[in-house]
Design a protein around this nucleic acid. Sequence first.
RNA 1: GCCCUGGUAGUGUAGUGGCCCAUCAUGUGGCCCUGUCGAGGCUGCGACGCGGGUUCAAAUCCCGUCCGGGGCGCCA
Length: 439
Amino acid sequence: MKRIHAKEALGLDDGETCKLGGWLQEIKNLGGIAFMKVRDRSGVFQVVLSEDEMGSESFESAVDIPRESVVLIEGEKKSTDQTDLGFEITPISIKVESEADKPLPLGVVDRVDSEAGTRFNNRFLDLRKEEKRLIFELRDLLLKGLRDFFAKEDFIEVNTPKIVAAGAEGGATLFELDYYNEKAYLAQSPQLYKQMLMSAGFENVYEIGPAYRAEDFSTVRHTSEFISLDFEKSFIESSDEIMDTTSYMITHALSFVEENGKEKLEKLGVDLEIPEHPFKKLPYRECINILEELGKDWEDEPEIGTEEEKMLGEYVKEEYGVDFFFITEFPTKVKEGTFYAMRKDYDPSLTTYFDLEYKGQELVSGGQREHRYDVLIEQMEEAGVDLDAFNSYLKCFKYGMPTHGGIGLGVDRLLQQMLDLSNVKESILFPRDPERLEP
RNA sequence: GCCCUGGUAGUGUAGUGGCCCAUCAUGUGGCCCUGUCGAGGCUGCGACGCGGGUUCAAAUCCCGUCCGGGGCGCCA
C-alpha cells in the first residue's frame, strides 16, 4: 500500500484502510488506552491504541516507541470530532522505520524554549516545528513571486561565477581560497559580471545566488553567506528607472506571497502589508534635515547610521504610512569604495545611488553605473583600486557599453522583515556567521 | 575591529561568599490510570564551560581562556 499524507486521509471513507507515515510527536498513555500523535508534512494525525483490542504485548511495545521516531501506520480511518483533523486511525500494524535516540538534544514539542544557538546546532530538529517550516515555505513563495515578475518583464535569469579573482569592493571582506595554487576569492557580489553582460547585449538580466562577506559582524541582519537578488538593465535614462523596476518587483512579489500563502501567513500571525508603487523617495540630504528636525545632533559629519535608519523608518511610517522608502542621491563621499557608481552631471558630489529601506532596515542598494571608460578609470584611480586586478572587467567598457544600472537585494533580509523575524538567520536554513561553520 | 552581556542536568532556568553534596519546569526511568490533546497522580535520574588564584569557606569574588547572545562600525 502506498503511503499517503494525513490531509489526504481526510478524504477517505470511514473504515477504509490506509497507510500513513511520519514522526512520532508524542504518546499520551492513559493506561489501557493511549494516543499517538504522528506528524507528517501536512499535519498531525492521531492513532488510537487500545490494550483490549491489540493485546498487552503490542500495546506495550507501541507506547514504548521513543518520540520523534519515524513510524509507518497501517490502519482504518475513523471520523471523530475529538481531533483537529476530524479523524483518527485504528491501527492494524505499526512499524518503526527509524528509532529516535533519547533524550532529544532539542525538544520538538516540549513546553520549554531553547536558545538560538542550541536550535541551530540541531537545526534538523528545529525545522521539524511547523512554524519554522512555514518560514521556508513562504521563502519559496517569495522566490517564485520574484521570478514570476522577471519573467513578465522579459528578464533572463543568469548565473555568474562565485569563485573569482577580484572583489567588487575592498579586499577586507573577501574569503580567500586556494585555486590550483593561485589566490582566488568567493564572490561578494555578481556586480562586475552583470555589467559585463550588459556589454554582451543581454539588456535585462537577474541572478538569485549566494554572496559571501568575510565581515566580522555581530548583528541580527548580517550573515557570512546570503542569497542576493541582483538585476541589471541597459539603455536606462536615469536611476529612476531602476527604482521603478525595484518597487514593481517588490509589490509584485509580496502580492504573490499574499495570494498564494494566506494560510501560512495566518498561521505565523503575519499581517502582510502590500506596498503601493511607486515608493517614497527621500534624497540623502533631505533625510539629514528630517533627522535634525527629529532632534538628531551630530558632532562631526552628519551620517545615516543604524540608529538613523530606524528613526527614518519610524518617521515615514508615521508620516506616510509606508514600510518601504528609497534614500536617494547618496553623496559621493559616502559611496567612496563604490567606484562604478555614476555621479550626477550637475553635481559630482552626489551619486545616482540609492538604498531601499524596509521597516527601518537596509534591503537594497543600487543605482546607475558609470559606463564611460575614461570616467570609470578616473573614479577607480580616485578610489585607489589596483587597475591590473580588474583588466578583464575594464575591457568590456572599451568595445561598446550601453548605459545601465541595477540593484542588489538581500533575499534573506526581505524575508526577515516581511515576517518580522528577530534575526536574519531565522530566514536561512543553515546560516553562516563568524562563529558558525556547522551544520 | 571596538563595546555591552551571558555560560548551572538532554532542554530552559533560580541561586551574586557559609542557609547549595544547588531551585523550579521540561525531559527521561519506574508505577497507577480506557478519550488524551500543555492529560493527571506517585516516585526515581540528571548540572555549576575550562585553567589558575583569593578565602577558614567559591556556582557566587579576581585573572586568563574557550564558547554563546546583542550593540556599533560596515552592509544586502
